[in-house]
Design a protein around this nucleic acid. Structure first.
Length: 416
DNA sequence: TCTGGGGTCCTAGGACCC
DNA sequence: TCTGGGGTCCTAGGACCC
């Protein structure tokens, strides 16, 4: 049996936790660059503002309804998330953090699940100020479905338990397929065209039909709804598979040197991430591109298999610059760039190339580089060129608190 | 004027081999 | 004139998640 604890409107609830005046007021949080709406309080959901909507299209509407708008502040949300997860670990057995605002717990063997989750819900709200919903089911997908229903219908008071798969069946006619975990936009549009509207409709189909229409992940979804655990859904090995550092620019850029400047920064950040986790990458793909909404589109990227796994900023930067030099085309309005690192290996056990060009001082150079930044700040030392033009930097005009302010200095009304 | 970022897994299709 | 088929590996891109 699985418990799924999910924070309600997490980012909006975080802003409220540090500013109780927002309680009962409509609140939205914007993505990086203040581009999309990524979190909405219940009041805003009632105004029919969709998740992921572009902010500029809704700006006036939100203003008319007196909605409070904030840029996202991931430092704050990360801190509050840690508090929530720490609290959950004191309440529930075998907690597995699934995302910044969700965690599963395995409660097989617990006798009184009802009391356990009621207590958990109470304590999390008391200690962190963040409201949560809780779903329980024999598979993760059923726990997730229970959670969705608990959140949606106030009559459940934020908790719904399916003791068996059969207990979920009466709800299926009332769950639109679009609400299922694993049905996104594409399948959500496709299924109604095939006559499938509710979860009940979907479960009437046989495995072969599901596999053809929704692929392997769809088949796992349906099995789990029937109460059969799908191992393929248990896809969280601890080892990370990729590192991505990318960003849309604050404004469009046209100059090659600015692309190089941005990619130098992303390559450095990606390498730092690998060093922090004691990992190395074997394959990198730097890319830069125009907006996907632009009529004149260009996507430039190159997959590079490195001779030897590395986490050296200088190596990644050099390859990133090479890619720009080889693929840059003038005349485009570039909107985004980044680097993807895959084939991640453990630094301790990686296979050194026979003709390794890595010198023993290389790791020490990067250690010194990290140490200087650590001691004197992120702008104290930098690799590669840095042009004066910083207009590729993010826009974040609506932050609630200064970006780097530590949450421990922020009073939380309900914090223990 | 302005449409996120960081992850996962799966699949289709091309290259290559025998 | 007729011009295989199956396997594997790789990559790009598509789907999903939060």
């Amino acid at each position: 049996m699985y418990v799924l604890v999910d924070c309600n409107n997490f980012f909006a609830s975080c802003e409220r936790a540090i500013n109780p005046k927002l309680e009962g007021k409509p609140v939205v949080i914007l993505s990086n660059n203040d581009g999309c709406i990524v979190a909405r309080s219940n009041e805003v959901k009632k105004l029919s503002v969709p998740m992921g909507a572009p902010y500029f299209k809704w700006k006036d509407y939100l203003k008319r309804h007196n909605v409070r708008v904030f840029s996202s502040n991931y430092l704050l949300y990360g801190d509050i998330s840690r508090r929530v997860m720490d609290t959950l670990e004191t309440c529930l057995p075998d907690v597995h953090i699934y995302s910044i605002d969700e965690a599963f717990a395995d409660v097989s063997g617990v006798k009184d699940i009802q009391s356990l989750v009621e207590e958990t819900k109470k304590i999390v709200t008391q200690w962190t100020g963040i409201p949560v919903s809780i779903g329980v089911g024999p598979t993760k997908t059923l726990a997730k479905a229970a959670n969705e229903l608990a959140k949606k219908h106030t009559k459940h008071n934020g908790i719904l338990i399916f003791n068996t798969a059969e207990e979920a069946v009466p709800y299926f006619p009332h769950i639109p397929v679009q609400d299922l975990w694993g049905v996104g936009r594409a399948f959500g549009e496709k299924l109604p065209r095939l006559g499938i509207h509710t979860t009940e409709d979907l479960l009437k189909k046989d495995d072969a039909w599901i596999k053809k229409a929704l692929g392997t992940p769809g088949l796992s979804l349906v099995h789990e709804l029937r109460g059969i655990e799908s191992t393929s859904l248990d896809h969280h090995s601890d080892m990370r598979k990729s590192v991505i550092r990318s960003r849309s620019f604050g404004t469009r850029i046209t100059e090659k040197k600015d692309i190089i400047d941005a990619l130098t920064y992303f390559a450095d950040r990606a390498a730092k991430m690998l060093r922090d986790e004691d990992l190395r990458t074997h394959v990198i793909r730097p890319f830069f591109m125009t907006s996907r909404f632009s009529p004149e589109r260009y996507y430039a990227s190159k997959t590079i298999a490195l001779e030897e796994a590395t986490n050296d900023s200088r190596v990644l930067i050099q390859h990133a610059i090479d890619v720009v030099e080889k693929t840059f085309k003038p005349g485009f309005q570039y909107a985004k760039a980044g680097i993807v690192c895959t084939d991640i290996v453990d630094s301790q056990h990686f296979q050194k190339s026979l003709f390794s060009s890595e010198r023993s001082e290389d790791t020490r150079i990067m250690e010194a580089y990290d140490a200087i930044k650590q001691k004197f700040g992120p702008y104290s030392i930098n690799l590669g060129r840095t042009s004066e033009n910083k207009n590729w930097h993010m826009k974040r005009n609506l932050l609630s608190t200064p970006e780097r302010k530590n949450i421990s200095s922020v009073p939380t009304a309900l914090c223990k």
